[in-house]
Write a protein that binds this DNA or RNA. Structure first.
Lengths: 215, 215, 215, 215
DNA sequence: CATGAATGAGACTTCATTCAT
DNA sequence: TATGAATGAAGTCTCATTCAT
């Protein structure tokens, strides 16, 4: 057993990460209201009081979790899009891949469930999440659809609505993974890979510009 | 104004419906854990004690709400499918219409959000909902996709996965309506009609069997 | 041992009084911030939750204590003054007697200490107390001084300032009784009767109109 | 701007004064229990730990504040009295002047409010304050009254009680200044100068020995 | 049947004090 | 000496459920 503990200063540097990780885990598991702050602290290996040394309230802790985990992903996605040279179908598939691997299939994706579940009880939190995550993400996808149309790859469509329709199954799977999918609920099994493939197939088939076809 | 009150026996018969309506409203608005049983009773016009006379706990009340509101809808949808004579695209659109009008756009649809939000805290409730709602609904849609393939209208596809992909945007909209959509959150506006249209368009374009095309 | 308890309804009627009495005792003993609401409930013979059934917060409980105990006294004092027929020196002595017996020498007088002690931490409470108690009480005394002058019994003086100077020793004794006087502090003994007599003596001697004397 | 910092030894010497000043300010503003030790340290420009290096607990810090600020004032007042050559009315007025300027109208006077407010929660602190401040101050005033009687300037009176009655309005004003007077509470305005003048006027009129008058 | 007073476990947050650095 | 990270007891308020009337 290693009794030597890291020096004080070192601890201070890693606390936020420990706390944020613990908070992410518990918020996703229990929801915002039901996650107890003492349990977050305990999971991070510190006492109740220490949590409040770093974050002044549960609400601020939640915001920090969102910022830490999601905001930077939006930025990365933007870079992928900006630098992509292939055709738009490939770009959409690439985005789906990144989204699935980095977000939906990890704890981070659970935050969407948390916010969706508690918008009406914590509107301020929801507004924060909308500003930081939902709006930027939708704008990204709408831009991609527009790119496809401009390059003649896609039929002309209502880009805003199609962006929602295109994102919906991914969001659906993301929600599922952290709700029904995380519990031993019988009969709710969804094969995410297959569903995603089916969705991509439908979607690209449905979007593709074809000579003589009309929306 | 009719001041005559219903006779005792009559009261006993209508109480459950009043309680169920109040419970549905408040569960959808606040979620299962955050809905206060006193408020449910108050909204139903009875006292806290009376609620417990009819339902022994909040969990049982919730189950009763699900049974009362959803289960019969599944039955009706089954009948529509069984009796439908047109082509499968039309059947899918008809089902979407019914789903939207009767479920997603009414309070009932909010129950899905409630369950999804709290599966991990109340697994027994979730299992009940899965048995009563999710599995039957998925089976219904999978059957429709299969019907389309059997009749040569749709490409041969993975029916289970496609059923999920087909339902996903509707579920997404249903969740949205009762979460972000029910709050004045800036930047989260989704036009459900347009999104549904976009989805149906994509989906039917993507499913349609076409000479020479392969999945 | 009498196991028969009062009926439910009866209990509900007496709860406010029990709680208010307990609260008065503990607020005066510990101060507003230091009085624990659970202890108030316990002293009233009920549980923590019951207190909050009657008063929604500690602040409201405190206001109720003030209203219950002091406000009516102000009214009574007004009636005494209005109906008094003797000379003003006698009226002042009568008021001092009532004040001492009914306020300063009972728990009620301790409220002044509580407010004075915590104005700066609970300004809203202090404002309430000022409106309900301090201002009306001062106005009463100022009116009495004015009566003395108008009837030629007192020298002409600054009525507002003299009202303060006249009330000050009573307030001093009232504060003393519920602070130093309530603890076994050595060397802080004040004989209230003697001090009051000395004060009345000085004050009436000092106020008396005398031929040829000037302020 | 002088960037040179005092040498270590120098720091050690001035720290206590800085801490004592900060503590005085915050004790008077918030009270003993509500003053946070971290804030005291911060206001003194040091860290929480440093405060505990100089004073082992909040109680000891408070005692040090009392000693530092008040005890010497009592000594000075004693000297004034001993060396005073005029008549006793003038001496009383002089003492009032010193008291007002040096104590009541400065932060120091606030300590009386603090002790009075929390005697019952911190009896040891109160005993200390009584020994150091209250008893000596009362003795001083009682001596002055006695001087007046001995010199035939004042009527013979109960010196102990009159000392209290004479001090009461000053204490009242001192308490007022640091409670209601320090907050924007409507309707609690007291003009200290006028009240003091009214008090002195009443008191000296009331004390004055007059041919043929008896107490 | 119906009521609503009562309970008490439990949640968030604060702060005096300690102690490793 | 000086720092400030860490602790954990304590305090306010909420709410599902019970039960006497």
């Amino acid at each position: 057993m290693n009794l030597a503990r890291p020096p004080r200063q070192r601890l201070k540097d890693i606390r936020p990460q420990q706390l944020l990780d613990a908070a992410l885990t518990l918020f996703v598991e229990k929801g915002f209201a039901a996650a107890r702050s003492e349990e977050v602290a305990h999971l991070a290996g510190v006492s109740k009081g220490t949590l409040y040394l770093y974050y002044p309230s549960k609400e601020e802790l939640f915001k920090a979790v969102v910022r830490q985990n999601i905001s930077k992903l939006i930025g990365e996605a933007g870079e992928i899009i900006a630098g992509f040279e292939g055709n738009t179908s490939e770009l959409l598939l690439a985005l789906f891949g990144v989204w699935w691997d980095r977000v939906a299939d990890s704890s981070v994706g659970g935050l969407h469930k948390v916010v969706l579940a508690e918008v009406r009880n914590f509107p301020e939190l929801a507004q924060f999440y909308a500003d930081e995550v939902i709006v930027p993400a939708h704008d990204l996808f709408e831009g991609v659809i527009r790119r496809g149309i401009e390059r003649g790859e896609f039929r002309p469509v209502d880009t805003g609505a199609v962006a929602h329709a295109v994102m919906a199954p991914m969001i659906f799977l993301m929600l599922h993974k952290h709700s029904f999918g995380a519990c031993p609920i019988q009969g709710c099994d969804v094969d995410p890979r297959a569903t995603l493939r089916a969705h991509a197939d439908l979607m690209l088939n449905g979007l593709r510009a074809r000579p003589g076809a009309t929306a």
